[in-house]
Each structure stands twice: as structure tokens, then as C-alpha cells.
Amino acid sequence: MKIGVVTFPGSNCDYDCYKAVQEGLGAEAVFLWHKEHDLQGVDAVFLPGGFSYGDYLRAGAIAAHSPIMREVVAFANGGGPVAGVCNGFQILCEAGLLPGALMRNRTLKFRSRPVYLRVEQAQPPFTSEYQAGQVLRVPIAHGEGCYTADAEILDDLEATGRVAFRYCDAAGEVTPQSNPNGSARNIAGIVSPAGNVLGMMPHPERAVDVVLGNTDGLGLFRSLADFLVESA
């Protein structure tokens, strides 16, 4: 099992992802440089958080057209598992692999703190280790995480079970107060129609180590590992 982590200029969560794969899962991790055209035979790809290309133009807009992304788009369209976290989610939307867009937080403030997430769908390849309705505590750190899409797209996401996570309170109630950025319908993460592409603003890779007091994000990496073992 080999998992690739893409590094763009300005990525800053790539090492966290790499370590989560290597130490959290005990799997092989490789960095994929944004200028490369070769995915090095990886079984899954992570697009990490950060500020690729300085967030110039729009967050994720320039990274979405970088050389490695052509390969990532082809890999995803062929059914390969791709997860984008934070800036990675923004890049997936800009690349057209996921619908909608991430706009400036409604409060205009950069939010960096742990939030509660309700698991909406416990499905491979990314959330099968969780249970639907389970409440996770995972950090967020973003200024542009307000998920926005037309009402028809939001309805379609819900009708087809493609909302992966929603912001909620400690009891799992989805409330306006528990929405840290103004995202439509408290959406924190979504998947593609085939389910193999996940985008989420919260950082599961920052919640994989007992030493840091939180392992709620580990389930995402374990879900992916289960999926890759079963489909091997």
C-alpha cells in the first residue's frame, strides 16, 4: 500500500499527512511534487492543507491547474481514491472534481480551533471505520471554508448521500452556533458521485496521535487502508 501526498508551493500540512500515513497507518507514504507528471504508482492521493501558490487569485485556483493535478484528475476519474483536506478541498472544487466552492468565512475571521463533526455517511473508502451519527472532534484552521453551492447541488448532495461530515455541537446536534464558517447546511465535507473523492475543511491528519490528545481523525486513514487492502 502506497499513499501519495502532493506538495504544492505553500502546502503546510503535507508532513502531517505523510506522518499520519506512515506512523498512524504504518503504510508507505511518498511526496508528489506539484511539477511532476508521475503519481509513482500510488494507491491513493492526499491533497494537503496550506496556502498553495499563496492563495493567489482564489484559494486552490492555481494549484488546480498544476501539472500533477492533471494526473490526479485522471486518477480520480479512473476511480482512484483522492482526499483533499482544507486547501486540498478548495483545490478539488477548483479542479471540478467536487461541486461548489469554498468562500471567505462569514465572520471574515480565520478560525483555528477544534470543532465537532457528525459523520453523515460511514462508507468506503474514507469513512467506513466510523459510524453514521458518530461525533468526532477535529481541528479546523482556515479563512475560506464557507461551503457554497446552488440549492439544486446541495439538494442533490443530500439526496445521494454525499455529505460526509457536518459541523455540529458536542451532542451531535447540527446548529447554526456550531457552524464555524457559515457553510451551507453546516457541510464540512462531501464526496464525489462515485464516492472516491473526498473534500473536507477539518484536519483529520492533525488528530491521529495519542500524544496530541486526539485520535478521532485516525478512522479516516484506517478506512482508506481497509479499502485498499480489500480492493488489492
Binding site: 487569485l57 482564489r58 485556483a61 491547474h65 472544487c93 461541486p99 461548489g100 466552492a101 468562500m103 446552488d150
Partner: peptide
């Protein structure tokens, strides 16, 4: 293709 995001 790049300069504007039609969603927003």
C-alpha cells in the same frame, strides 16, 4: 477556465 469561478 481560471480567472473567475462560475460558482461564486
Amino acid at each position: 477556465h481560471l480567472l473567475a469561478n462560475p460558482v461564486t
